[in-house]
């Protein structure tokens, strides 16, 4: 799903799955995060290339798998993926809203994290 440099529409963020858990993660200023709102937004191609390189490095270091850039539009609630596929990927199955990201958050809360 990677977007070629010429075609990509800015801004973009870096998305991946955590190698160990499979959870959807985003690259933010403090490293990988499950919180879409904290994803680092690349506004120009230079920053996007940097993000892409970060993704490749992270994959090589066994932190994440399937890292790629996705196009987003900034909203007041944070980044919103332009493509419906990536929107579903960031929210969870549309058929089970309770099993999406909130489930992971609830689990984490229950575990006292």
């Amino acid at each position: 799903m990677a977007v070629s440099t010429k075609r990509r529409l800015l801004p973009v963020i870096l998305i991946a799955n955590d190698l160990r858990s499979g959870d959807v993660v985003f690259y933010g200023d403090d490293g990988w995060t499950c919180d879409l709102g904290r994803a680092r937004v690349a506004q120009d191609h230079g920053a996007a290339d940097d993000l892409e390189a970060t993704g490749a490095r992270s994959m090589a270091r066994q932190n994440v798998v399937d890292a790629y850039l996705i196009e987003i539009e900034p909203t007041t609630d944070g980044p919103r993926p332009r493509h419906f596929r990536e929107r579903f990927k960031t929210t969870g199955p549309t058929i089970y809203p309770h099993l999406g990201r909130r489930f992971g958050a609830a689990q984490a809360a229950a575990a006292g994290e």
Partner: peptide, 13 residues
């Protein structure tokens, strides 16, 4: 992993 039935899907394995 595939030969052991393990996929990577959108949200998780």
């Amino acid at each position: 992993r595939l030969q052991n039935g393990l996929y990577l899907q959108l949200h998780a394995y």
